[in-house]
């Protein structure tokens, strides 16, 4: 294998892994506190996508449009909390699970009804279609943007979690929710913040994801949700680091099969990937990074 192939492989893994990691992190931020998978999470990607589509043709520069779209995903996240979770939070976990499914279906159908079941193109900046050549390898600039955005976002998130009052409150709430309330941390506020952060990750992923596929459909959220879920499961549901590790590992598996499988088997790549996931889970049933506490609600 020459240097060029190694570079290409590494960048492919980092590019895909960055998307997976951000997506997984958005899911785990909420799971950590509520011990619940937010199934309406994929729809936040959709909300950001359609916002970008609706802004198409406006005189705004793309970066502002993207910012508005990300903000809409954040608002979508907060709305998920207020509409689907807070009213039933005192009830059973099952109730929240069902409302999260219902909210997801509601959003998807709203997109079907008010926009269109067909794919809609979103505006993308020039730079997303450009590429650079390094060591004889052609690299799309958007891949480099994806990797850079992920590193910046992960770095900023780590800083917030470690160095700010908010981060500490979030970690305390994830560690022992009841106790966090008892020492005086405002529970509702912290949960809403977690949903906002989750929306932020979904929004950024949406921009980068759309940069790859160029169009938005009502069902666009399913794949990111599935990927995020699998990344969390193999990385460890209870740990933020686990989500990131899981994201990059899943990408490594995916890309490796992309490179290694003969062309006529390539269409079965997902089957190979999921087999690997099963193997990992057989060896490490609670994920690679074990969370410190049990998965029960506190």
């Amino acid at each position: 294998m020459d240097v060029g192939t190694i570079l290409q492989f590494t960048l492919d893994v980092l590019n895909l892994g960055s998307l997976y990691a951000l997506m997984a992190l958005g899911l785990v931020v909420i799971y950590g506190i509520l011990k619940l998978v937010n199934f309406a999470y994929g729809e936040l990607v959709m909300v950001a996508g359609y916002t970008l589509y609706l802004l198409n043709g406006s005189p705004l520069p793309w970066l502002i449009m993207a910012l508005v779209a990300v903000c809409m995903a954040v608002i979508g996240g907060i709305t998920t909390d207020l509409v689907a979770f807070r009213p039933v939070r005192a009830n059973s976990l099952t109730a929240m699970l069902i409302t999260s499914f219902a909210f997801s279906t509601l959003l998807q159908n709203a997109a079907l009804l008010f926009i269109s079941p067909r794919a809609r193109n979103v505006p993308l900046p020039e730079i997303f279609t450009q590429s650079v050549t390094m060591l004889g390898v052609i690299i799309p600039v958007r891949n480099l943007i994806t990797i850079a955005s992920a590193f910046i976002l992960l770095g900023a998130f780590t800083l917030v979690m470690k160095r700010t009052v908010l981060g500490m409150a979030l970690r305390a709430a994830a560690s022992n929710f009841t106790m966090a309330r008892m020492v005086g941390i405002p529970a509702n506020f912290i949960i809403t913040v977690a949903f906002a952060i989750s929306g932020l990750f979904a929004g950024v992923v949406a921009m980068l994801w759309l940069g790859r596929i160029g169009a938005v459909v009502p069902g666009i959220g399913l794949e990111p949700l599935l990927v995020a879920f699998i990344a969390c499961v193999i990385g460890g549901m209870r740990s933020l680091v686990g989500a990131v590790v899981g994201g990059y590992l899943l990408a490594l598996i995916d890309v490796s099969f992309n490179y290694a499988l003969p062309p006529d088997l390539l269409s079965f790549r997902d089957a190979f990937t999921f087999t690997m996931v099963i193997v990992i889970l057989l060896l490490r049933p609670s994920g690679l990074i074990k969370g410190p506490d049990t998965g029960k609600r506190t």
Binding site: T164, R171, G184
Partner: peptide, 27 residues
């Protein structure tokens, strides 16, 4: 005992004063 097991000891203690509105440094 109900501690925040995955937070440091200092952070456990600081959580209470943070909730009362102290700055991170002061807490």
């Amino acid at each position: 005992v109900r501690l925040f097991n995955d937070l440091s000891v200092v952070e456990n203690v600081a959580a209470t004063s943070l909730a009362k509105g102290l700055s991170l440094r002061a807490a």
